[in-house]
């Protein structure tokens, strides 16, 4: 195997790629939320539609960016499956009694499950919006219409909360994997991880809640 292949295939290499792709995906989520919040900022939907048009204005470059994003997801998901399988195999005969000592958290112990839920929602999300034929005609209208339905809205809120749980471990963990662990920075990084997880979860959850509530009150705008 090549030098880079060897490094990436090692246990440390896998960690580093997991952390790096995780970071970039958080960056995507931040920008995605920034775009989505335009739906609340401007209830007429014009600002959001302009944002979508702005992105579409990039033409083939947008496609390149989307493919890059898809690659990030694929790498992150592939490694998640591989790490999970390898880790299960590393202890085939388990403990009769098992007690945690305080290192692991709900977030850390459920990374695979939270990730799988996010992946499942991602597929639904893409089918609901990005790959819906009506999306590019009037994206804001499609989003409002979809999220006014309680089933869709609750799934969206659920996914947002699961992202929060995933990041409650993932953010800090990515720093550690990339070699950042310093007594002077650790308390700040731990807090920052929780803040990022909380803000992304509540930020995304706010959008369907807003449409659900405004739909039940009649016309949102």
């Amino acid at each position: 195997m090549s030098r880079i292949g060897n490094a990436l295939a090692s246990s440390v290499g896998k960690k580093i790629v997991m952390g790096l792709t995780g970071f970039l995906l958080v960056g995507f989520l931040v920008e995605h939320l920034h775009g989505n919040l335009k739906l609340i900022e401007d209830p007429s939907g014009r600002a959001f539609n302009e944002y979508v048009a702005f992105l579409q204005g990039f033409g083939p470059l947008l496609l390149v960016a989307e493919l890059g994003l898809a690659l990030l997801f694929l790498a992150h998901v592939y490694l998640a499956f591989r790490l999970t399988l390898e880790n299960l195999q590393a202890r085939r005969s388990g403990y009769v009694v098992r007690a945690r000592r305080g290192g692991s958290t709900t977030g850390s112990l459920t990374m695979f499950y939270s990730g799988a839920l996010i992946l499942a929602y991602l597929v639904k999300h893409l089918l609901d919006f990005r790959f819906d034929a009506r999306f590019f005609a009037d994206p804001a209208a499609l989003v409002k219409q979809t999220l006014a339905q309680p089933g869709h809205a609750l799934a969206y809120v659920g996914a947002a909360l699961v992202i929060g749980v995933h990041l409650s471990h993932g953010f800090r963990s990515a720093f550690q994997s990339l070699g950042v662990n310093h007594p002077g920075w650790n308390p700040l990084l731990a807090k920052l991880g929780m803040v990022v997880a909380f803000l992304l979860a509540t930020g995304f959850a706010a959008i369907p809640l807003y449409f659900m509530l405004s739909a039940s009150e009649g016309n949102p705008s």
């Binding site: 896998k14 880790n87 963990s173």
Partner: peptide, 22 residues
């Protein structure tokens, strides 16, 4: 050393930090 560790079939670190607590 990392290569030798991988060859022994240990699991991968996912930063639970249970090791440090134990």
């Amino acid at each position: 050393m990392v290569h030798a560790m991988d060859a022994e079939g240990f699991g991968n670190c996912t930063n639970h930090f249970e090791c440090m607590a134990a």
